[in-house]
Amino acid sequence: MSEKVCIAVTGAGGGVGQSIIKALQWAEYDVVALDSDRLATGLYAADRSYLIPRRSDREFVDKVLEICKAENCRLLFPGLDTELGVLARASTRFISAGVIPIVSSPRVVDISDNKLLTYRTLRDYGVSVPKTVDMSLWESGDGDPLPYPFVLKKRQGGSRSRDVHIIHARRDLDKFVEQGNDASMFIAQEHIDGYEYTCGSVTLNRQCIGVIVMRRTLRDGDTYKCFTVRDEIIEGEVQTLMNALEPFGPCNAQLRVRDGRPYVFEINARCSGTTAARALCGFNEPAMVADYVCHGAMPSFSIKEQALLRYWNELVVSNDSIDALTHNGSLVASKVRRM
């Protein structure tokens, strides 16, 4: 590549956005980092960064598009779940301006954002899913929604295991309601014991190009440790799912295995917080998509089975850099020191 392609990444303060930034920089792409918070760490890890409005602001799309055009960005990777629907519905505006947002169709985004819709869609695709009940249809006099234990999750939205409750007995369910929770906003889902897997995939032209499977350990809803595994059954199930769902670019599936059979309980129509970890294992999803869209190169990968152990790393940023970003709304070549 004679000249670096410029790519914008939103959500630079979160694990997903930072993971995308790392994966693209390792592939020698030029990254412009975007976030609404002046202390978002990823803003100081890129050569150029901008403050943008929050997704709920009516100027969000206009501002992101303005920055992408000014920086001559070829692609835009969203790093926040809350931005996916907005960007999916504004994709034609970006494409008309020469910027391709790496976001799936509104249909796919809506399916991934609604756990009840996820359950019904995957079941119709023939993918194994844990039994799921709409709690808005449940009345306490009807008995228990599912055999114990089961899991209560927000039907729509939610991330990093927030609003997730394991219900072991009827007293737990009664306590959940007594605490003021609106059960109608939740779904009850069959609890499946065993290891949890996070599976990355890349789909282009409605065909799943590849899948990486990682067994993971969670801490506070984030992947704390992950271990790449080669499992033909899991890989095949995820590939079947993605070929039926037809996302665009990276799409993540979370599942558990019971009696040798994978049960998918969640999909995320975006990159994952483990994107950088996957890149280190030979499966760089952002780079594969960028190579294909920008250079016409067919995605290639070579997955290595290894363990990824996460740890905190300090990034020292000068107060002058923070002040410059705050006052100007943008920053070029921030001076940082990694400890």
Rank of each mutant, 00 (worst) to 15 (best):
C68R: 05
C68S: 07
C68A: 07
K69A: 06
K69F: 00
K69R: 15
K69C: 12
A70P: 00
A70Q: 10
A70K: 15
E71L: 06
E71M: 12
E71K: 12
N72E: 15
C73K: 08
R74V: 09
R74C: 14
R74P: 02
L75C: 06
L75H: 01
L75V: 05
L75G: 00
L75W: 09
L76P: 00
L76S: 00
F77T: 02
F77V: 03
F77A: 11
F77M: 08
P78T: 15
G79S: 05
L80W: 07
D81H: 08
E83F: 09
L84K: 09
G85P: 01
G85Q: 09
V86H: 04
V86P: 00
L87P: 02
R89Y: 02
R89Q: 13
A90V: 05
A90E: 10
S91L: 13
S91T: 05
S91M: 06
T92V: 15
T92L: 13
R93P: 01
R93K: 15
F94D: 00
F94L: 13
F94I: 10
F94T: 03
F94P: 00
S96D: 10
S96R: 13
A97M: 08
A97V: 14
G98I: 12
G98P: 04
I100M: 09
I100A: 10
P101E: 10
P101K: 08
V103Q: 00
V103N: 02
S104C: 04
S104W: 12
S104H: 05
S105R: 00
S105F: 10
V108W: 07
V108R: 01
V109N: 03
D110E: 15
I111Q: 08
I111D: 01
D113W: 08
D113G: 15
N114M: 03
N114K: 02
K115M: 00
L116C: 06
T118M: 11
T118Q: 13
Y119C: 07
Y119R: 03
Y119S: 12
Y119F: 15
T121V: 13
R123G: 06
D124C: 12
Y125R: 01
G126Y: 07
G126T: 03
G126W: 05
G126A: 01
V127S: 14
V127L: 12
S128T: 09
V129Q: 07
V129G: 07
V129R: 04
V129K: 10
K131Q: 15
T132D: 03
T132C: 11
T132Y: 06
V133C: 05
D134T: 06
M135D: 01
M135F: 03
S136W: 10
S136Y: 04
S136I: 08
L137F: 10
L137K: 14
W138N: 02
W138I: 05
S140M: 11
S140P: 06
S140L: 14
G141N: 03
G141E: 07
D142W: 12
G143Y: 10
D144P: 04
D144S: 15
D144K: 11
L146C: 11
L146H: 03
L146N: 08
L146V: 05
P147R: 10
P149A: 08
P149S: 08
F150M: 06
F150D: 04
V151F: 11
L152H: 08
L152Q: 09
L152N: 09
L152Y: 04
K153Y: 04
K153I: 00
K153E: 01
K154N: 07
R155C: 01
